[in-house]
């Protein structure tokens, strides 16, 4: 075990040899890379990591990692991840999936995972479209886009993921986009280190059904949270989440009593 503690693992050490099914230019490549960078940053032994996903393009992600993984059912990553974490608190457990997983078919599990507050990091790759079934609207698709493409459900407003998570009581809420791997890998690492349920909303472009212009659109709008922003001030968090869908970074972070998580986590908090 000694050498395991002294080896410095590289991001590529967390990738297996499988080639992703994703389209060229898909944002999920960057998310995959960010997972490996976060693992390398924390130097977690591969075998201590388990990534549980749902169904969809993004849920293929665990299959490309040289860690343990469970690519489950549509919308059900969270229950399975919670069962695993409860039974095996020694593991670093992450869940991931898409916007359909988290905000359509599996929404019912989300608030309850938040209530239980297990030490799990949940990364939602939100491309605001159903890519795998070829371009239907998802719960986060904007009205404008639906109108432009003539999609079903034009009149329905989109879900605001970070606000939803915050309003349900998620103790750690962050947002970024696949175009900013440095920030994403840092947020994943922070999420893993956070001693509770960490929700990371990651905009990840679908080049096939949204078009390449979408990343440029995101790049134009995204910005950091205001300089004086305090992610521990719930009033400020509420105001920001209601008004600004493009502020990136840690949006809310509740101070948690780490003692409560003794024996339920394996990565030390910085």
């Amino acid at each position: 075990m000694n050498d395991l503690n002294t080896i410095q693992r590289k991001p590529t050490d967390y990738r297996n040899e499988y080639k992703p099914v994703w389209c060229t230019g898909c944002g999920d490549y960057a998310v995959l890379k960010s997972f490996t960078r976060a693992f390398a940053k924390l130097n977690i032994p591969n075998e201590r990591i388990a990534v549980v996903s749902g169904i969809g393009c993004s849920s293929r992600l665990p299959g490309y990692l040289d860690t343990y993984g469970f690519n489950t059912l549509h919308g059900r990553a969270l229950p399975i991840a919670q069962g695993l974490k409860a039974a095996r608190p020694d593991l670093t457990v992450l869940a991931c999936g898409g916007d359909g997983d988290c905000f359509a078919i599996g929404t019912g599990h989300f608030p309850h995972a938040i209530r239980r507050n297990p030490d799990i990091t949940y990364v939602v790759m939100d491309n605001s479209i159903y890519g795998l079934t070829k371009g239907q609207a998802s719960p986060t698709t904007s009205r404008a886009f639906k109108e432009q493409k003539g999609l079903i459900g034009v009149e329905e407003p989109p879900v605001n993921p970070a606000y939803f998570a915050f309003s349900m009581g998620a103790p750690f809420v962050a947002r970024t986009h696949a175009g900013n791997m440095a920030e994403l890998s840092d947020l994943i690492a922070q999420g893993i280190q956070y001693p509770g349920f960490a929700f990371i909303h990651c905009l990840s472009v679908c080049v096939t059904y949204q078009g390449r212009g979408f990343q440029e659109e995101i790049d134009r709008h995204v910005h950091a949270t205001p300089a004086n922003y305090n992610p521990g001030d719930e009033r400020a968090v509420f105001d920001l989440l209601r008004s600004d869908p493009f502020a990136m970074g840690v949006l809310y972070k509740k101070p948690l009593d780490e003692a409560a998580f003794d024996g339920n986590r394996d990565v030390p908090v910085e």
Partner: peptide, 26 residues
């Protein structure tokens, strides 16, 4: 051992499979 009261039966069996994936009879 551990017990989780699930939000529905889908979650209940999902949690069971997660625990069992971890090697714990569930």
């Amino acid at each position: 051992g551990k017990l989780l009261q699930a939000e529905d039966e889908i979650a209940a069996i999902g949690m069971v499979l997660g625990a069992s994936f971890g090697g714990v009879p569930a």
